[in-house]
Design a protein around this nucleic acid. Structure first.
Lengths: 232, 232
DNA sequence: CAGTGGTCTAGACCACGAT
DNA sequence: TCGTGGTCTAGACCACTGG
């Protein structure tokens, strides 16, 4: 067995024994170097492995922590974040980072055709579970479809604001889910190190007539979520 | 901009310019060290970052390669691997690694209750797209439900074998999807380095009466797949 | 201020792949 | 046999967090 595997196993066993507690802090990298008479590179290899497995995560320069249990999410049922989180015993929170005009030239990764010719607004938010930032989302919609929305309480459910204040109702949606690395620009907002693995969800939501309401990009820290899909 | 980010951007730009071709080989780590007067650690940091993004992948000691486009998969529609792959222009292949009795004590990560009291068989297979191993699956079922199945052509669709030879039809299924690291035991079968990120799918399939037919665990190389989910 | 992770260097030896 | 990635050492300086 390789050294970094031994270190990883050592930590994993301690986690499973509950030695650090749920969400607890691990020993520092330098302490682990002492324990195993090893080097930081090797210790980091072990930690990064456990991070890929979703077992631990890091907060910028604060240390490594045990991952709490994952939020279960069913992409087919249109549920709201607060309800879903509370149902599973989490304390949800939302923070608005910015709202303003959006120039689709800025983001060529996506197909903006369905919004062609309309001026767009982008809303960026972070979502928390039990005080831990776990997801960053960028919500794009046609500015003229939701006049004055920038003055609403945007930390609440967008779906509900759209429904109650604008009488626009989401009827269907498509989600494209892939695994990727969190773009470095967002690392600070999620208090994570650069390049953390994440689940990326590109979601398009439509009204009853098939008109695109909004196009959203979500980045979930991979250790914070799992998806449940059923079919009949 | 940090050095490893510069290196990553350099490679990324070359990939987007098509310099290596689809599925093409990248320069060796030591060559990149020369180009950037850097060290292997830093070069590897850059490469590992691009790997997490799904842009490149490695084959054991052979080198780093550009990831081909991802297979699009809809977890709600029950389609067969061969059909799905061919539809999207891939050449699919399946390889049987092993089949034999399975002792559920060996795998405590899962809940085997629905199979309680039955003796189980485990079938392990690797699936390929265009000659590249992209997925490893472990299929578990009650031995007595499919007598003699070990002598069938198990590189074909299991669903079809169950239907045509045993008159057992899958009616519904549930999938639990999470992001994790590929267990080291499977790294060789997928010809990947240790600890590669992957999409893990735990799937339970049921017949019309709600009886569990099989319980499968799939590991997809994360850069090889994306999920498409729609809801109405 | 001391302690943390984040980045980086300049080497080394090994196992395995291609030839 | 030689080139590849895989693992590992023993340092270093930096930016930021926390008390």
């Amino acid at each position: 067995m390789l050294l970094y595997q031994k270190i990883a196993k050592y930590i994993q066993d301690l986690i499973q024994a509950g030695s650090f507690g749920d969400g607890g802090k691990l020993p520092s990298e330098r302490e682990l170097v002492e324990v195993f008479s090893s080097s930081r590179i090797t210790v980091r290899d072990a930690l990064l492995r456990l991070e890929s497995e979703g077992l631990i995560y890091r907060r910028q320069r604060k240390g490594w922590f045990v991952s709490p249990k994952r939020l279960k999410w069913n992409p087919v049922t249109k549920v709201n974040f607060y309800g879903l989180a509370r149902e599973q015993g989490f304390e949800p929170k939302t923070q608005v980072l910015s709202i303003g005009p959006f120039n689709d030239d800025a983001d060529s990764r996506l197909d903006w055709q369905e919004f062609a010719g309309q001026s767009l607004t982008k809303l960026v938010r972070t979502r928390f579970l039990d005080g831990r930032p776990v997801m960053l989302e960028e919500i794009h919609f046609a500015t003229e479809m939701f006049p004055g929305i920038e003055n609403k309480a945007l930390d609440a459910s967008i779906t509900e604001i759209m429904a109650s204040d604008y009488h626009i109702h989401v009827r269907s949606e498509t989600s494209l889910v892939s695994v990727t690395a969190l773009p470095d620009i967002f690392a600070n907002s999620l208090e994570t190190g650069n390049g953390a693995a994440c689940l990326k969800i590109i979601r398009r939501r439509y009204d009853a007539k098939g008109v695109l309401i909004d196009l959203n990009v979500e980045y979930w820290l991979h250790g914070a979520i799992e998806m449940l899909v059923t079919s009949h």
